[in-house]
Simulated assay, not measured.
Amino acid sequence: MLGLLLLASCLWLGHGEVVKSFANCPQFFYRNTTPGNALQPQNPAWICQCYKNLYHFATLYDRKMSVPVYSAYIYQPGPGRRSKSWLVEPQLINPTYHKDMDTESSIANQYRITPQQIGQSQAINQDYNKLKDLDCGHLSPSGHQSGNNSKWATFTLTNRVPQNSTLNKGQWKDYENQTMAQKTPGCKSPYMIMGAVPGNNYISKKRVNVPSHIWSAACCQTNTSMNTWVVIAENNKNQIQNLTLAQLETHLRARALH
């Protein structure tokens, strides 16, 4: 399901193309170049994540697994409040619905549908009830955005994966908060792609896949060079591994063959 050439633009080792479904939000990929079909799942959805009529990041979503394959965004941490609500994507339910992410109750009332009908196209809040040893992990983290609206936009279920609690609160948190801050001074618009590798376990009666690995890749142009870095973590261990692009390709090739 996952291809070998996973990283867009300056992280892309082959020839990228502008995927038609990301035509409204190519700005979240370096030089507007997206990964093409390399990471395409069996039942994909390309989402330009829209909140308050603005696009904040881009997500390739796996409808079958009910989790994102990756989210792409520009790293720009800043002040703002976290959201208390998780939102869903109306246009996954019906392409004629409005494009702004919204709460389940608002969509249900507006279009006279049930949460169960919403859940036919994506994960819903009920899927994440009573998690054990798992957190609600963001692929596009709220801490990597600036301003209330951009931070709140990351609280969409199409950007959410079940992530090991110890990892989410431990090494992955250190990577998001400390390592990224250390690597990005002098960068011009650091471009990030954060992804999840499908695993063998599920939550919510096998509705939502629990990734086996979480990975992150970045590139940033400075005045003198182009810097890139890649990390990956098993989703049942509190440990992050630094990889080269070639090593990550090899890893994903092996996972795709299983």
Rank of each mutant, 00 (worst) to 15 (best):
M1L: 13
L2W: 05
L5D: 14
A8R: 01
S9T: 10
S9V: 00
V18Y: 03
V19S: 15
S21K: 14
S21V: 01
C25E: 02
C25F: 06
C25K: 06
P26Q: 06
Q27C: 03
N32M: 04
N32A: 14
N32V: 00
T33R: 14
T33N: 11
G36K: 05
N37C: 04
P41Y: 06
W46C: 12
I47G: 10
I47H: 07
C50F: 00
K52M: 08
F57R: 01
L60A: 09
K64D: 13
V67W: 00
V67G: 06
P68S: 08
Y70V: 03
I74Q: 09
I74N: 07
Y75A: 07
Q76M: 09
P77L: 07
P79K: 10
P79G: 10
R82K: 14
S83V: 12
L87C: 04
L87Y: 15
P90K: 03
P90L: 09
I93D: 03
I93C: 13
N94K: 08
T96N: 12
Y97I: 07
H98V: 05
K99Q: 13
D102N: 08
T103M: 07
T103C: 03
S106G: 02
I107Y: 01
I113P: 07
T114G: 06
P115S: 09
Q116T: 15
Q117K: 12
G119T: 11
S121I: 03
S121Y: 09
I124G: 06
N125H: 01
D127P: 01
L131M: 14
C136L: 14
G137Y: 01
H138E: 05
H144C: 12
H144T: 10
H144V: 05
Q145L: 11
G147T: 05
G147W: 03
N149Q: 14
A153S: 15
A153M: 04
A153D: 00
F155W: 06
T158G: 04
T158Y: 01
N159I: 12
V161T: 14
N164F: 14
N164M: 08
S165F: 04
T166I: 09
L167P: 13
K169A: 15
K169T: 13
W172G: 13
K173Q: 15
D174R: 12
E176D: 12
N177Y: 08
Q178P: 00
Q178I: 14
T179Q: 08
P185K: 05
K188I: 13
P190N: 08
I193R: 05
I193F: 04
V197W: 06
P198S: 09
Y202W: 14
Y202M: 10
I203C: 11
R207T: 12
S216P: 07
C220A: 12
T222S: 13
T222Q: 04
T224G: 00
N227V: 12
T228D: 04
V230N: 11
V231Y: 09
V231W: 04
A233Q: 02
A233K: 03
E234W: 01
N236A: 03
N238W: 02
I240F: 11
I240H: 11
Q241W: 00
T244M: 05
Q247K: 11
L248E: 07
L248A: 11
E249L: 09
T250D: 13
H251G: 00
A254H: 09
A256K: 10
